[in-house]
């Protein structure tokens, strides 16, 4: 049994909860809370070890806002999810640092292209729901509007940074992560996540076979 479920059961025992709905909500809250805390901590730890913690903070902050409002592709297994979160966000931060010279030369073009891609994809595709969490009609409408507003605000922040010549690395990292989230809203992103899931299943089978 996962730690999150054990902890929820501990709370249920102590609080003497009988209501099945309350139990389900606590178990769900526990799973969401601990997977988010673990995912974020592991990502930040890897980012710190690789030396990319500075742009990684901005990437995570933007990701929290965009994913919460626009949704995106999801992994079926927590382990491959940790891998996707930790590996790809660290990779984006690493790329931002290593290709910063490119941004210095073409900053207007990069920000314009990334903003347009994010705006077009979000207006067409957001919110992308997962099978595990279907969305209602009004909830979809609200999330579409809020995700659009969030992207507009992010673009305003980016343009302000650009003209005030503040935080160029953060600005570039935001552009890269917006492109990543646009990809995650498209079928291509879902294929990528499902391939990582398949790879994880394959590794699991190999491990099981070796043990047997």
């Amino acid at each position: 049994m996962a730690f999150s479920e054990k902890f929820a059961n501990y709370l249920i025992d102590i609080k003497n909860l009988d209501n099945e709905d309350e139990k389900d909500i606590l178990k769900y809250g526990s799973e969401v809370f601990f997977t988010t805390i673990c995912g974020t901590t592991i990502t930040l730890l890897i980012g710190w070890l690789v030396g990319v913690i500075y742009p990684l903070w901005a990437i995570l902050l933007v990701s929290i806002i965009v994913r919460k409002l626009a949704g995106g592709a999801h992994s079926e297994y927590p382990i491959s999810c940790f891998f996707i979160t930790a590996f790809f966000y660290t990779l984006i931060a690493f790329l931002a640092i290593k290709t910063q010279f490119f941004f210095e030369q073409y900053k207007n073009t990069v920000i314009f292209l990334a903003s347009m891609i994010a705006l077009i994809v979000i207006s067409k595709k957001a919110p992308v729901e997962s099978l595990a969490k279907p969305l209602g009609f009004y909830q979809k409408k609200q999330l579409k509007l809020f995700s659009f507003i969030a992207i507009i605000l992010l673009i305003v922040i980016q343009i302000s940074f650009l003209y005030l010549q503040l935080y160029p690395l953060i600005n570039y990292a935001i552009s890269l992560v917006l492109i990543w989230h646009a990809l995650m809203l498209l079928p291509l992103g879902q294929y990528l996540v499902s391939y990582i899931d398949k790879f994880y299943l394959m590794l699991k089978e190999v491990n099981l076979n070796e043990k047997n």
């Binding site: 929820a8 709370l11 909500i25 606590l26 769900y28 809250g29 526990s30 799973e31 969401v32 809370f33 997977t35 988010t36 995912g39 974020t40 990701s63 929290i64 994913r67 919460k68 409002l69 626009a70 949704g71 995106g72 592709a73 999801h74 992994s75 079926e76 297994y77 927590p78 491959s80 999810c81 940790f82 996707i84 979160t85 957001a126 919110p127 992308v128 729901e129 997962s130 595990a132 969490k133 279907p134 969305l135 909830q139 999330l143 995700s147 996540v193």
Partner: peptide
């Protein structure tokens, strides 16, 4: 945990790439 569950129910999905069954 209850607040976390309600916040997640109101949003599109979790921030990381794993979504437990609602």
């Amino acid at each position: 945990l209850t607040i976390a569950a309600f916040i997640n129910a109101a949003s599109a999905c979790t921030f990381i790439h794993y979504q437990p069954n609602l």
